[in-house]
Amino acid sequence: MTILHTVNKSPFEDSSLESCLRCSKAGSTILLIEDGIYGATEGTIISDKVKAAMADRTVCALQPDVEARGMKDKIIEGIKLVDYAGFVDLATENDTVESWL
């Protein structure tokens, strides 16, 4: 079984991304949405942790949220940008969706 984890909060105000990284398994996918996309940006105090997770988990960010926040040029290399249709595909490809609210 695989899980699609969604994280919707900035990692600088909430521990949801860190908790998701701690409680997710190799092979799972983490999709950063809404303010969660700030966790996908380069050069932050958490970007090394995100890159480490990318070794065995897939990290994606919701492109419309990235663009809305002007962060398109700051996304960590290797993080896949998906649109809402891609979000739907991730939800179908994984067995469960877990929202880290």
């Binding site: 079984m1 899980i3 701690r22 409680c23 067995d95 877990e98």
Partner: peptide
């Protein structure tokens, strides 16, 4: 532990968070 919880989450059909 977090890793044990990750295994438990992996077995679920529905995960409800509020």
């Amino acid at each position: 532990t977090a890793q044990e919880l990750a295994d438990i989450m992996d077995e679920q059909d529905v995960i409800l968070s509020f």
